[in-house]
């Protein structure tokens, strides 16, 4: 129990519970199944991206190009839709092609980070601008609406199983798959190891470059899946629709207990982080709190969470550097 209390996931869960209780008094709508399904479905894109971001942050890097990358894939999807037949093979094809495009874009980030060894923040700031610049050039900043979308894709978007929208299943699948990779595969172990202690990981034979390459490519891969989710959710493609979302994604991961210094972070934690941001936003809308205040509150929670983490981190470092001073005799 003491161990459980110490886990950061627990404190996030506690905050979620408290907010839930408060909001359920503020608005009778809040604590309904339908509202929660809406919240989760509406945050599928952020959630999928946050899962990919978790791996990157575990290796003590960051990717600020995720929103631009995802948008680039949605635009590609929009153009592909013009050529795809109106049957179920289109859906299958999109699920093959979109993640592949995303993965290639992510691999480009990975290559610059791991081979040329440019800090990830610089690389992804650069690619953010490249991706979004190209997107605006190609689309002229215009919407692509659903008139060209295959009916099969629109039908796919509306599927519900046991009353739960298909996107939530997709989200769950991504979460489970990534959790499995982290816990049960060698590459997942290597991701954790590099974040935990980069020098030691080289001593035990882990290929640093390959792992960096993997986390950025995997981020791109999930960006592709998030692009499908976004297209499906909005039934349109908005070249500016995701602008700035990378910050929400990173915030969710950090709230979920991942440490910017690397090593710490988990899929359940990130899911809680996403959920926390989502219900706060939902709750404040229900409570009719001004949009500006929503940002202030969200920002404040992030700053507090990260400060708490940073102070803890430094305290641990200090303990490690102590010398065994001889006692007087």
């Amino acid at each position: 129990m003491k161990l459980l209390l110490k886990q950061k996931e627990f404190s996030v869960l506690a905050i979620i519970l408290i907010i839930t209780v408060i909001l359920s008094f503020v608005s009778p709508v809040f604590l309904t199944v339908q509202n929660w399904l809406d919240i989760i479905e509406g945050n599928t894109v952020i959630g999928i991206l946050a899962i990919g971001m978790t791996l990157i942050i575990i290796t003590s890097d960051i990717d600020v190009s995720v929103a631009a990358l995802t948008t680039a894939v949605t635009v590609s999807i929009g153009y592909l839709f013009q050529f795809l037949p109106d049957n179920w093979s289109s859906v299958v094809l999109i699920f093959l092609i979109a993640p592949l495009i995303g993965m290639l874009l992510g691999a480009f980030n990975g290559l610059l980070v791991s081979r040329i060894k440019i800090p990830a923040i610089v690389v992804t700031l650069g690619t953010l601008n490249i991706f979004s610049g190209l997107v605006l050039y190609i689309t002229n900043g215009n919407y692509i609406n659903s008139t060209n979308f295959p009916d099969s894709f629109l039908a796919f978007s509306n599927i519900e199983m046991a009353g739960i929208p298909i996107l939530i299943y997709l989200f769950a699948l991504v979460a489970f798959g990534t959790w499995f990779i982290l816990k049960y595969t060698l590459i997942g172990r290597s991701v954790l190891a590099i974040g935990g202690n980069a020098q030691s990981s080289v001593r035990v034979g882990i290929n640093f470059e390959k792992v960096k390459m993997f986390v950025f490519s995997y981020m791109g891969f999930l960006g592709g899946i998030a692009a499908i989710a976004q297209t499906s959710y909005t039934s349109a493609i908005d070249p500016n629709g995701l602008a700035g979302m990378e910050l929400t994604v990173i915030a969710a991961v950090v709230l979920g207990g991942a440490n910017i210094h690397g090593g710490r972070g988990s899929i359940p934690g990130t899911l809680l982080g996403v959920l926390l941001l989502a219900i706060m936003q939902n709750g404040m809308i229900l409570a009719r709190i001004d949009v500006f205040w929503q940002n202030v509150v969200t920002g404040a929670i992030i700053v507090i969470a990260v400060s708490y983490d940073e102070i803890n981190h430094r305290r641990n470092q200090e303990k490690l550097s102590n010398i065994d001073v001889k006692e007087a005799s």
Binding site: K183, Y184, T185, L186, I187, G188, R189, S190, L192, A193, G195, G196, N197, S200, S201, V204, G205, I206, K210, F214, G263, R264
Partner: peptide
């Protein structure tokens, strides 16, 4: 050592380092 990994993982780590990345643990 890897502070964020379990005792078992720390003892075992490195054994598979020449294997394929998708090897199941």
């Amino acid at each position: 050592l890897f502070p964020n990994l379990s005792v078992a993982e720390n003892i075992y780590i490195g054994r598979d380092s020449k294997k394929k990345p998708w090897t199941k643990i």
